[in-house]
Design a protein around this nucleic acid. Structure first.
Lengths: 224, 224
DNA sequence: GACATTAGTCACAATTCGTGACTAATTCGA
DNA sequence: TCGAATTAGTCACGAATTGTGACTAATGTC
């Protein structure tokens, strides 16, 4: 039986915070030689499912449950190598709440995103693309909230933003902007973990937004 | 000969301004019946080319020259119908400078984006996705400049932004922000077209940008 | 030459933002 | 038991950015 070169693969980059760093889920592939190899969970879509459904199916076995968010990143169809040798790979990002990754399937493990073991060049590009997409959509989509449990402290939320943006934020500014955005509502619970004053717990609860359209921004327009 | 169901197609949404509206390039497909049918230029990628190369090949015959920018939008792999019946279609946007679409190939024509003739549902979704991507990347990528000739007046540039944003902008604000961004440099030419004071011509010439990182924005984070 | 039309600039009020300093509530160790 | 350390949360003020109307400039038209 000769496995024909598949036309397509669907590859999922699962992200979750571990401590103060973002981590990516990889699976160990049973290589007959002793050499240890890792790759992103991936598979060819079946003929009767959509690619979104394929991505959901691909994460299921490795992650215990379904992720808090699962979105397409892009299609990768250059000449870089892919484990399945697919002509085109479609990348997805899955966001997993911190602490929610209790029961990992078989040979799966979380790696800090900036210390991945060697993986196929195409999958490397998919991970980079996923990170790029996450950062780009951070202020358009409730990404940060998907990386946290359903209730969280504002310090935790700020920490996630700092993680994703890669820079420190000023506490007062962060809270002022958050307050103005009406994205979050206080619960009446407080958490006193470790030392220091206990923090109030909040939940993600976006209000209807009135059209607050601003002027044009030429923020990041550059050479390309 | 039975044409097997192809796994992939690459579909290109070419955009150019015509007067005060954005237009999309469609080709008439030779239907044996008298019914007139239109579709986005598309084809299956060949086994020896990347999908970017396939997209470039697809636009070539219909558009005279190469577009000023050609970028992937996303992969569309739901159950909506596509002319080629492909399992997955990869959408691209091509930006064409106004007036540069002199020699259209065979049965191609520009349609205002909000008055398209009936097309396959999947292609309809690709057009919507392309518009969405263009708007989302407008402040990250020099999109507006690709829809204009190499020199242009600031009023023309503002008109493009208003077209893409779908709202009016205040002249002084627009110019102040543009000035602060160092994206544009004056030529020593002036154009006196029609009545009114002649306008100075500018060209796109981005300067090195110093890191102007701002605070967090929760601009568009909402319910989804 | 008056007027309509388009380009380009100015200036000021209003808003937003960056920041340091403050108060509050808790744990830990002496 | 008290004080230092630690984390949460708020305030207020100067600086920077933004929205906006009004102004000047240069052209075509009648």
């Amino acid at each position: 039986m000769s496995a024909r070169r598949p036309a397509l693969s669907v590859d999922v980059v699962s992200l979750t915070p571990h401590g103060r760093r973002l981590t990516v889920l990889l699976v160990r592939v049973g290589d007959s030689r002793s050499k240890e190899r890792w790759e992103l969970p991936n598979d060819a879509p079946r003929s009767d499912e959509t690619i979104d459904e394929a991505a959901a199916r691909v994460v299921r076995p490795t992650l215990g449950a379904q992720p808090a968010m699962l979105e397409q990143v892009a299609a990768f169809g250059d000449r870089r190598r892919h484990p399945s040798d697919a002509a085109v790979s479609i990348g997805y990002v899955a966001l997993v709440a911190s602490g929610a990754s209790a029961s990992l399937g078989g040979d799966a493990a979380w790696f800090p995103v900036d210390e991945l073991p060697p993986i196929a060049p195409r999958q490397r590009a998919i991970v980079d693309g996923a990170m790029h997409a996450v950062r780009a959509r951070l202020d358009q989509s409730p990404i940060a909230f998907r990386l946290l449990p359903s209730t969280f402290t504002l310090s935790q939320l700020q920490e996630i933003y700092e993680l994703l943006l890669g820079r420190r934020l000023h506490k007062a500014s962060f809270r002022r902007a958050l307050h103005a955005s009406w994205l979050v509502e206080p619960t009446d619970e407080w958490r006193s973990e470790g030392r220091g004053r206990p923090a109030q717990l909040f939940r993600y609860a976006p209000r209807k937004r009135r059209g607050s359209r601003r002027g044009v921004r030429f923020e990041g327009v550059s050479g390309t």
